[in-house]
């Protein structure tokens, strides 16, 4: 098991969130959408310019800018 930031994840790679390293509005928004430690995420794809990233969590699709995904630490197998 290795911990990486969500930005570094490859397409179709899955992992389990281990930490959200940001507070304030951004941290709150990320958590409100279900990105909390323990949640399983899978990279669904990236926009044509490689940013933002689309991820799959709790059965729905969520998009984040890369600089926002930088705050999400994921444990990948």
């Amino acid at each position: 098991m290795e911990k990486i930031m969500m930005r570094e994840m490859k397409d179709n790679q899955s992992g389990v969130i281990s930490a959200i390293k940001v507070g304030g509005e951004l941290g709150r928004r990320i958590r409100d959408m279900g990105l909390v430690p323990g949640a399983t995420v899978k990279i669904q794809g990236r926009a044509p310019l490689y940013d933002p990233v689309a991820i799959r969590v709790m059965g729905f699709t969520l998009t984040l800018r890369n600089n926002e995904a930088d705050h999400v630490e994921v444990e990948v197998g």
Binding site: P52, F60, T61, L62, T63, E68
Partner: peptide, 10 residues
């Protein structure tokens, strides 16, 4: 900028 965190609804 306002966080982009956005749902892509089905």
């Amino acid at each position: 900028s306002t966080p982009f965190v956005m749902e892509l609804p089905p």
